[in-house]
Design a protein around this nucleic acid. Structure first.
Lengths: 95, 95
DNA sequence: ATTTTATTTCGATAAATATAGAAATAGAAA
DNA sequence: TTTCTATTTCTATATTTATCGAAATAAAAT
């Protein structure tokens, strides 16, 4: 299929994943803290239900904006910097 | 109110406006063509109804991503480069 | 003055989204 | 092995979104 259309669709998908303030905040905290975050920690920080955080985590992960490392029951989220570099170069610095 | 939160909300709003492939295409065409576009032209190019294009135009304009110049019945759309520069520096070049 | 052209608004609808609580899953700790 | 902790999935719901066609608006051209 057309590579242009692919990219437009991918960008729209990425922007969709970033079109919610709490998700912007998650990205920002990850960028600033230089460490991983887990679901319950974000739930406390942003004061939203764990199931909602899980939903946001999934959206970010499916878009390819984050990666997950599992340790026991806990899943640690970190930025997928490759995706930002490829599709949104400079964005993390401007955030 | 908190200036951080303001910016996060604004970014989420911008991303919301960009979270649809046809709107990405409109931005891209504007960037590439270096000229203004009107509703019926985009309707032909993207093969979507004029009323739908009008809806997209409104969304982009309300987010501050585009500007409109009216000449007679026709409204010409152009990029609001200030908004891109302020919130998404470098994005237009990477598009 | 009537018709054509460009856009917007309205009404309707189908799909997607954000949210929470409850239930399910899975591992850790006691 | 029972309990505690972390996350996900499910169910439900309210809101938003993208879309179209029809109607309304407004200016241009005839």
């Amino acid at each position: 299929m057309n590579i242009e259309i692919e990219k437009e669709n991918k960008l729209a998908e990425l922007f969709g994943a970033l079109s919610e303030p709490n998700r912007i905040r998650i990205i920002k905290i990850l960028r600033d803290s230089k460490r991983e975050l887990n679901c319950s920690e974000v739930s406390s920080l942003l004061k939203i239900a764990p199931s909602t955080v899980s939903y946001h985590f999934k959206a970010l992960r499916q878009a390819g904006l984050t990666k997950t490392r599992q340790q026991a029951q806990t899943k640690y989220l970190s930025l997928n910097v490759e995706t930002f570099a490829k599709y949104l170069p400079g964005f993390l610095d401007s955030l």
